[in-house]
């Protein structure tokens, strides 16, 4: 199990070829109160960098880009009723979707936890 981070503040937790994707603590904090998450449909295919989900606060809508290429295998249905989970537990219960990774080599372009820490430190 390894967690990777993208420069768009998504994390992907890879286990047996399937990645669980969510947004980082830094991102949820910057977005403020999350009111809605539009998740993809199970079975749909996405390429790395495709717009795969939208996370909405009251005054902003931010696109979530797929960190890898693959097929959606599950979505977090709890978010439909309770989008606030993204605020309260961005790294846990607030995950967005699971994706079956087509090419694990794509993970190499992502950061590890330390790298991401340095990345956000450099932002401000």
């Amino acid at each position: 199990m390894t967690i990777y981070y993208s420069e768009d503040h998504e994390w992907i937790n890879v286990e047996a070829g399937v990645g669980t994707v969510g947004i980082s603590e830094y991102a949820q904090n910057a977005l403020g109160d999350i009111v809605f998450v539009e998740v993809p449909e199970v079975g749909d295919d996405y390429a790395k960098g495709d717009e795969v989900a939208v996370v909405e606060s009251v005054k902003a809508a931010s696109e979530i880009y797929s960190p890898v290429t693959g097929e959606i295998t599950a979505i977090n249905e709890a978010l439909e009723e309770n989008a606030a989970l993204v605020n309260s537990s961005p790294n846990g219960d607030g995950w967005f979707f699971k994706i079956k990774i087509s090419d694990e080599n794509e993970l190499e372009g992502l950061m590890d936890a330390d790298g991401y820490k340095k990345f956000i430190a450099g932002l401000e």
Partner: peptide, 11 residues
């Protein structure tokens, strides 16, 4: 992402 317009909306 992160295009928040920075405006608090809760109370």
């Amino acid at each position: 992402m992160l295009n928040n317009q920075g405006r608090p909306t809760g109370v």
